[in-house]
Design a protein around this nucleic acid. Structure first.
Lengths: 156, 156
DNA sequence: ATTTGAGTTCAGTACGTACTAAACTGATTG
DNA sequence: CAATCAGTTTAGTACGTACTGAACTCAAAT
């Protein structure tokens, strides 16, 4: 199997992951690239310099991208004996986090709809459209946690 | 109740809806404003000029925003007898559409993870992280439709 | 036929922001 | 101490894009 060809394919794949992740989370593309690369790189724990070389980004960009990814809980750092710096790896349940966060964000819209109902409290006719929305998002907010609970059970 | 004060509150609320909608769907803020306004305006069917005045946008902006919202199925146009132009209103199940689309987008990531597994087919050790992700998204893709089915049932 | 008004198109502006390069910091190694 | 290297900071660039204003199109009204 053509070694270099596969690397190209992987890099293209990383790009797709990056697009998906960045778009869905409102984060810069480069954070998605880092995350995508860390999904498939060998070894799975790499230095910032290695990652930068792999995805063709500058040291500076990587510095900020890593800070964001760490703050978001998507990536963590590990150290190795007899090595200067730090290495990065994806946390074990990154994508569960991503999905969970996304779904919870949806549910949180019920807070906004609730406020809308409050503003229109003495104009029930006009509040109808807001009420419809509120019903759905309140329902979602209730249903999301058990959904993930089932995932935990199903996948164990 | 202070009429003008409530209008201000409503406008601020519209702004929150706009932020949520635009951010979550990668659409310009103004589309969110239109949608938010159409959730609470009276009458519920309004002309582009009315909406523009309400949210303080230009005619031109509204033209493109409406095109986008219509294409996305968030808004539809209605006509009235003895009226020149067209009026806009939110479709009845806007937010269900929004939520559905969002969840389905998550599930579709399983297509990307599947491709990743394919690329790494003869390197199973390295594919481990991708496989974990794939399990989750494939599961989500299966679970989303029944979730909404339950919503249809619960809300009827 | 002229006017009116709804709606589109387009050029131009303003603005945010992703990214780089290079200078800098500060800890570690020899 | 001098040298090295990981990582941060910052100034600057490039780029996309949301939005406006004004010119335009075209159907309806008078």
């Amino acid at each position: 199997m053509d070694e270099q060809r596969r690397d190209e394919e992987l890099l293209a794949w990383v790009e797709r992951v990056a697009a998906f992740f960045a778009k869905n989370n409102g984060l810069p593309l480069i954070t998605g690239r880092v995350l995508g690369w860390l999904m498939v790189c060998d070894p799975p724990e790499q230095t910032a310099a290695q990652i930068a070389a792999a995805i063709g980004a500058s040291k500076g960009s990587l510095s900020t991208a890593v800070r964001v990814l760490e703050a978001g809980g998507f990536v963590r750092t590990v150290t190795r004996p007899a090595e200067r710096g730090v290495r990065l790896r994806v946390v074990d349940d990154v994508w569960e986090r991503v999905a969970r966060r996304k779904l919870e964000a949806l549910g949180q819209f019920s807070g906004i709809t609730a406020d809308g109902l409050e503003i229109l409290r003495d104009d029930p006719a006009r509040a109808g459209r807001v009420r419809d929305a509120h019903r759905l998002f309140a329902w979602l907010e209730r249903e999301i946690p058990p959904l993930f609970q089932r995932w935990e059970e199903d996948s164990s």
